[in-house]
Design a protein around this nucleic acid. Structure first.
Length: 298
RNA sequence: GGCGCCUUGGCCGAGUGGUUAGGCAUGGGUCUGCAAAACCCAGUACACCGGUUCGACUCCGGUAGGCGCCU
């Protein structure tokens, strides 16, 4: 049984295509999106109207991380396969997407207090000193992390301290073995069209009432550091409407550009045109899947 | 019509007679528990025309556009 992965930038129409695929074959959708895991902001995070797994599973107060997402996503995929259906892993977060489909062998979470401790060192002693400390503890990790990259220096220190390392035992962030036979697809929409869709979708968000949604949500929950990264959360809450729209459009475009990098980097990805009705794209995907299933597995 | 002020790279925004401010956006790159994140690299602008000067984006004069006040 095949797993289908559909990757694409925001507004490339992933959700609609996935929904259309479900009309054509027994399948279930597993979301690979680092922000849709949060509950409480369906409009802002662009939640699909169709059922998808791993959407809205955590409160905004929760600090999400791939390490926590990965086993859940993999379990969902296995369960769908077990039920004799096709798992459709759909998403725009490259790292989550990979984690759902492949065994990344993610290193352990930081031990309690470790992050704060190293953060403090970085803060007080400075980037160079923190990096020098890493150089002592884990030279290979130090070699691959820039001193200014605070996140990774801290993370590398956490790991080095416990005898682990930031350097993966096996490379394979962008490609490598899948957990199951997988058909990997990338939805491609020409940039001008994508920009148009982003602008349109952003306007629609405001018509749908994002402002109220955000205001209400912030009243009831203090977003975790991860959740507070949700695009537009800050802008919608603090800027006047027109400025917020403008800012959100710009940020979303930038995000889409970043996703396009993943689209280019993911190995084994088959590019499928998505600047057409979702049903057509879905039909092509299903056809590809049927062809692939007839081929002997490698 | 008169007087005064302003004009910096896609946008915002410092500044100096001779050293690339910076931020955002843009383009390229990195990436293994914060990834809608974080980090790295790139682009030499001073409205236009003349003058002063060894040298002007910076000083002087004029032109154009903008803002304000006055008749």
């Amino acid at each position: 049984m095949l797993v289908i992965g559909v990757f694409g930038p925001t507004a490339s129409g992933k959700s609609d295509v996935a929904a259309a695929v479900r009309e054509l074959m027994p399948a279930e959708v597993v979301s690979a999106d680092a922000m849709q895991v949060y509950d409480g902001l369906p409009i802002l995070t662009n939640r699909s109207a169709h059922p998808e797994r791993l959407v809205g599973i955590w409160p905004l107060t929760h600090a999400a991380a791939v390490g926590e997402y990965a086993p859940l996503a993999q379990a969902a995929v296995d369960e769908i396969l077990g039920a004799g259906k096709t798992p459709l892993v759909v998403g725009g977060t490259g790292l989550y997407f990979r984690a759902a489909l492949a065994e990344l062998e993610l290193p352990p979470a930081p031990s309690p207090g470790a992050r704060e401790r190293w953060e403090r060192l970085y803060e007080e002693a400075g980037a160079a000193a923190a990096h020098a400390r890493l150089e002592e503890l884990d030279p290979p990790a130090a070699a691959r992390v820039h001193p200014n990259d605070r996140r990774r220096v801290v993370r590398a220190l956490e790991l080095a301290e416990t005898g682990s390392s930031l350097v993966p035992r096996r490379e394979g962030l962008f490609g490598g073995a899948w957990r199951h036979p997988t058909l990997l697809l990338g939805l491609d929409v020409p940039k001008p069209e994508l920009d148009r869709r982003i602008a349109e979708r952003t306007r629609r968000m405001f018509e749908a009432g994002v402002e109220q949604e955000v205001r209400h949500t912030l009243l009831t929950a203090e977003p975790s550091t991860t959740a507070s990264k949700i695009l537009g959360l800050h802008e919608v809450a603090t800027l006047p409407r027109e400025e917020a729209i403008e800012a959100l459009i710009v940020r979303t475009r930038r995000y889409a550009a970043y996703q396009r990098k993943w689209l280019r980097r993911l190995e084994g990805l088959v590019i499928v045109a998505a600047d057409r009705p979702p049903e057509e794209t879905a039909a092509e995907i299903v056809a590809l899947a049927r062809t692939r299933e007839r081929l002997p597995s490698p």
